[in-house]
Amino acid sequence: MNKSTLHIAILESSKIICEGIQAILYQSDMDCRIRRLGTLDELIELLESNPVDILIANPLQFVNREKEIRKIRKSYPSLSIAGIDFGMMHKPSTLTDVTFTLYDSSEHILHLLLKLDKKSQSHSNEKEGEENLTRREVEVLTGLVNGMLNKEIADALNISIHTVVRHRKNIAMKTGIRSQSGLTIYAISKKIISIEDIDL
């Protein structure tokens, strides 16, 4: 597993709580860099120029700014958010990935954050466009380069046209190739189909 420095931002205006979380993190064997932020706007500014893997935040900071949080999550899909539960939340917030309370043990908090780290790592792998196609995608691709229509592929694989279209989108995203003739060459290079199948 690739062990890299974890970038953590703490969004909390209480100095006591900030210092406390920071102490727990620094005393663990977690390799991390911590930034402290007072306001959401500071976070937005930070994200523009620096990587942030995990945000630990007081959910009160999100009040009335839910839209902006969703936008941040969309623009930075690898960012995970851990909320601090002050005992005032009646239901888990949809804006955070996990929450912990001020009374949780250090071990528990670290465990939660490490789990988030794994999540963000798997996310960034996906994002790098590693072009490993799934078995289904390979099947759709094979149909495609054999000149089958979406409908025909759907029937042959017993899936809906909608699903075929979704697979096609994924194929294009993963391979970076969008045209059918380009995909044919891709499929041959990857030995998904044999060149003998193609009329030259």
Binding site: E131, R178, S179, I185
Partner: peptide, 16 residues
């Protein structure tokens, strides 16, 4: 522009 990108990608990533 799309097909030009395809061409580039094929040469950069796939064709030996």
């Amino acid at each position: 522009e799309l097909k030009l990108k395809d061409l580039k990608n094929l040469l950069l990533k796939y064709i030996t």
